[in-house]
C-alpha cells in the first residue's frame, strides 16, 4: 500500500529526512517512535503534502502511484489522512458543515455523487457514536474552544467520516490524560480494518498499550534505525532512546 524508498526531504533547504525507508501493507498498524528532532512530524507532513516540505530524493508510492507531486487535497482524495498533533481552529465554520464539505470534495474528486445534507447528518451521527464524540461538538465551530481531548477526538471523527486507506496519527497522545487517551485509542481501534493501514507516530509507549501495533520502528537522525514487533516498544521504554540508538550506531 505505502512504500517509502530512500526518502530525502526537508524544510527551507535543511535536510531532515535522510534516506528513510518504510513499507506498510494493507490493514497493518505501524508505530514510529523517536526522540524530539528525529523527523517524525516532518515525515507526517511530507506524506500529507504540506507546502514548504520539499522532497529532494527518493520516492513515496501509495497504491502504486508516486504521490510526491500531488497536492494535499489530491492525496486526501487518494485516501491519505493526517490526524494532526495540533488541530487547527476555524472560527465561524460549524464542525458538521466542514466535514460535509470535506467529504463531498473528496467524493467529487473521485467522480462519486455528493452526499445530501440529510444523509450526511445521519452518517455523521453514526460515526460520532462509534468514536465517542458528543453531538454538541458537531454543531460547534471547528476545534474552536475545544479542549485538548475534544480536538483529538474530533480528528478521529474526521478519520471515521472520510474513511481513508492510510491514516497517519501524529502524536495523537500528546496532551491527553489517561482517560482521554483511552477514548481516542478505542475510537481508532474500532476503525481498524483489513483495508485500512495506520502509521502511529508517538513519543511514548503508553499509546501503544491501547493501539497495539503490528510493527514498531525507531526513527532517529532522519532514518528508521530499527524495526521490530510490538516488544520493541517495551524494550525502548526500558532502555531509553540513547541506549537503543547508540546501540544501532555501534
Amino acid at each position: 500500500m505505502l512504500k517509502i524508498e530512500n526518502l530525502k526531504a526537508g524544510v527551507e533547504g535543511k535536510e531532515i529526512l535522510k534516506g528513510l525507508n518504510l513499507q506498510v501493507k494493507p490493514g497493518q498498524v505501524h508505530a514510529i517512535m523517536g526522540p524530539n528532532g528525529s523527523g517524525k512530524s516532518t515525515l507526517a507532513y511530507v506524506l500529507a503534502g504540506r507546502d514548504g516540505y520539499e522532497v529532494s530524493g527518493g520516492s513515496v508510492t501509495f497504491d502504486g502511484h508516486d504521490v510526491t507531486e500531488m497536492s494535499p487535497e489530491e492525496r486526501a482524495a487518494a485516501g491519505i489522512f493526517l490526524a494532526m498533533q495540533y488541530p487547527v481552529e476555524i472560527p465561524g465554520v460549524a464542525n458538521s458543515y466542514f466535514l460535509r464539505q470535506a467529504l463531498n470534495a473528496i467524493k467529487k474528486a473521485r467522480g462519486e455523487p455528493e452526499v445530501s445534507a440529510a444523509a450526511f447528518m445521519k452518517l455523521l451521527r453514526e460515526k460520532a457514536a462509534v468514536v465517542g464524540v458528543r453531538e454538541d461538538l458537531l454543531k460547534r465551530d471547528v476545534n474552536f474552544g475545544f479542549s485538548g481531548g475534544e480536538k483529538k477526538r474530533n480528528e478521529i471523527l474526521q478519520l471515521a467520516v472520510l474513511e481513508p486507506k492510510l491514516a497517519i496519527l501524529d502524536e495523537t497522545d500528546s496532551g491527553l490524560d489517561i482517560d482521554a487517551l483511552r477514548t481516542v485509542a478505542e475510537g481508532v481501534n474500532r476503525l481498524r480494518s483489513p483495508e485500512r493501514s495506520f502509521i502511529v507516530i508517538t513519543h511514548y509507549q503508553r499509546l501503544l498499550d491501547y493501539i497495539v501495533p503490528d510493527v514498531v520502528h525507531i526513527q532517529a537522525h532522519g532514518q528508521i534505525q530499527r524495526s521490530g514487533g510490538k516488544e520493541l516498544a517495551g524494550e525502548l521504554e526500558e532502555k531509553g532512546y540513547d541506549a537503543m540508538i547508540g546501540a544501532v550506531a555501534a
Binding site: F81, M84, V88, A109
Partner: peptide, 23 residues
C-alpha cells in the same frame, strides 16, 4: 495552518479560502 488543515481534508485551496472567509 488553516489552509493546510482544510486541504489535507480534501477541500481544494480556493474552496478552503472561501470557507475560512465565510466563517
Amino acid at each position: 495552518d488553516q489552509l493546510f488543515y482544510c486541504r489535507s481534508r480534501g477541500v481544494p485551496e480556493e474552496d478552503a479560502v472561501a470557507l475560512i472567509v465565510n466563517g
